[in-house]
Amino acid sequence: MSFWRRFARNLGAMVGLAILALVALMAVLAPVLFPFSPWEMRGIPFMPPGEAGFLLGSDSLGRDVAAGIAHGALVSFLVGGVSTVAALLLGVTLGALAGYAGGWVDDAIMRFTEFFQTIPSFVLAVVLVAIFTPSIASIVVSIAIVSWPPVTRVVRAEFLSLRSREFVQAAEVLGRGRIAIMVTEILPNALSPIIVLASLMVATAILLESSLSFLGLGDPNLMSWGFMIGSGRSVIRIAWWMSVFPGIAIFLTVLALNLVGEGLNDALNPRLARRRGIVVT
């Protein structure tokens, strides 16, 4: 309860949450508001916003930009969410093992992690998608593959410091098993940074997906914000709305996720956030 109150006190975070709720609502209502495929030609091409029944204008083939944005929201959330969950699964497992076991296990896992960190993540994602042919699954997998190393590092650091805490040692002395200690004693105490990191990872994943589709590596069957910007890029001087509105959608969503992440960070680490510095001895 007090967590929610601390979170609610942060105006930015609440604004972020509101934007996210709106985007989510748009994604859910897209089939109702625009009960047709976003690829369908609905009228005259290059119609400015507000004309001929196009709320946000039409593109070079007469497709509805507003419908594209609404349908694209689902793709963005899907890619952001699923790839983050996948990256978390991998990152938390490896980080927990490395931090708890220490020794050569830690060394091996961390060298493996560094191997991924030395390759520029966007280039790796492009290569992976190009090899596995662009589809929603290959995009999700490649985004997950490039975004787990930071999770591993954070989780490992948390486990390293929590491992030597007295309550963990007490559990050892009680004779609990290693996995039980990792899952029930250490992990719950390491959740706050993981949650914060996850919210920012969703934002990064959405940006990565947009960048991939901008380059033409998006799923050809799904409308996506990045693809819309990419296709509007060459005609930006005569039809600015084709790239500006999807751009705004990306900007707002990513900004909202970052605001929420910041708010979560403050709410989960009240000692860092409290700058009034009250010490009573």
């Binding site: 805490r165 007295e166 309550f167 040692q169 007490a170 559990a171 004693e185 719950p188 105490n189």
Partner: peptide
Amino acid sequence: FQDPYASLNP
């Protein structure tokens, strides 16, 4: 344990 603030899982 020594430190009652650290020895119980919060």
